[in-house]
Simulated assay, not measured.
Amino acid sequence: MRIGIVCPFSFDAPGGVQFHVRDLAEELTTRGHVVSVLAPADEDTEVPDYVVPAGGSIPIPYNGSVARVTFGPVAGAKLRRWVQQGDFDLLHLHEPMNPSLSMLALWVADGPVVGTFHSSMERSRALQAVSPVVGPMLEKLTARIAVSEEARRTLVQHLGGDAVVVPNGVYVDRFAGAPTDPRWTGTDERPTVAFLGRLDEPRKGLPVLAAAVPAVLARVPGARFLVAGRGDAEDERALLATAGESVEFLGGVSDAEKAALFASVDAYVAPQTGGESFGIVLVEAMSAGTLVVASDIPAFQAVLDGGAHGRLFRRGDSDSLAHALVDVLSDRSAARELAARGAVAARRYDWSTVTDQILAVYEMAMSTTHARVREDPRSRTMFGRLRAATTGGEDAWV
């Protein structure tokens, strides 16, 4: 099968959606499919051979974070050539309702088109405002996937329609077999707790953890907190400085370092306050056999099965987090048992299983639309209007 995948977010600053696209493309390739990924990326950015750079991107605020996307006539022209030359059996668009390459692809393409929805939002004035405009575009999607029930709820609530839930994937064995690192390995006297996320994104919850640390150290004075991630967090750094050597900032970590970190620590804490539709990092930590302590936002409750596969605490409540950490660091036997249950549960998210589910959606989409992907002739009019609006040029494309 010839599969074209469109990633809306830039490979210059990869995040969760980009990693999902990368891993899916590689898993499909190992199964003998021909895969091409179109994604924003500067020409000098190192990308895998299967990624076609669509040019530079611009940062826009998105769901409590910053997304780097590309949009407009130049990107549209590259997209059109990619569709024409790809001769795809099917297109797979990620976040097709965002103003990005994925939305452009939905305009351009006709035939079997699958859309995956990743985002979770409590409410969005922007989506509600554009819903009457972009809602009808959903009809061009032959099939829809949501990565979680939260992502599905966002789709249904804001845009209408429905989707089959297929979770994000993880290469479980890469984490299960990761080596430990003596710098981060905990002991009975000095257990270790890891945090991983953008330090300057409030929704990642570092302020919640920072406020909990003193209470944990009062009960478990040997505890060590390893804070990994990029970004400035001056207030949190100042607060955590009072903990002295009990807190260490690791900076950004590679994929291999992340796996080793999870394999080494006694607990991984996920204090996010919202904006998460799934929680792939929870599954990665569970795969490594690490006990997860997470806020009780709906997405994390789903991954941890209400606390059966990890420990939950009240969202945004530092006292609740401190109490949970003291419990798991003090009762090591119970913590190991809970972590073992999490490791078993993580297997359901292995890419071998998730890809089977995605391929089933592909087969359904192709059986419904008995044609290859082709250019939608109506898109010429759409793009002509876009070009005229953005450049003042003629209603023509070359």
Rank of each mutant, 00 (worst) to 15 (best):
A263Q: 02
P53V: 06
V165F: 05
N98W: 04
P221D: 06
R22W: 04
P207G: 01
L159A: 03
R311W: 05
E363M: 09
S330C: 01
H92G: 04
F117I: 02
V193L: 00
G229T: 01
P14N: 10
L79Y: 07
L325Q: 08
T390Q: 13
V193M: 02
G197E: 01
G316F: 10
P298E: 05
S65W: 01
E234V: 14
V166Q: 06
D255P: 05
R372Y: 06
D23R: 11
V283H: 03
E236F: 03
A308S: 14
S102H: 01
V361C: 11
V37K: 09
V326C: 09
M1L: 14
R374I: 13
A54M: 14
A345E: 13
T381L: 12
P182T: 00
F19Q: 15
D162F: 09
L38F: 14
G231A: 02
H33D: 11
L312P: 12
V35T: 09
F9L: 14
G279A: 13
A345Q: 09
E150W: 00
V74W: 08
E43G: 08
F117V: 00
T355H: 00
L261S: 10
Q157A: 12
A143R: 15
S131D: 09
E337K: 08
R378I: 05
A308K: 15
S264H: 08
D23T: 12
A389T: 13
G274N: 12
Y62Q: 09
V164Y: 04
P59W: 02
A39R: 02
S148N: 03
T154D: 04
T368E: 15
G177P: 03
V21R: 05
R125W: 13
Y62P: 01
A126T: 13
T185P: 00
L106F: 05
I3P: 09
E394K: 14
E234S: 12
L206Q: 08
V344S: 07
V292E: 00
L386A: 05
G115N: 03
L199E: 00
V283N: 04
A39M: 09
P112W: 03
E394D: 15
A371Q: 15
E248Q: 15
S148I: 06
F71K: 02
R183L: 07
V66D: 07
D200Y: 01
L240C: 03
V83W: 00
Q301E: 15
F262I: 08
V108C: 05
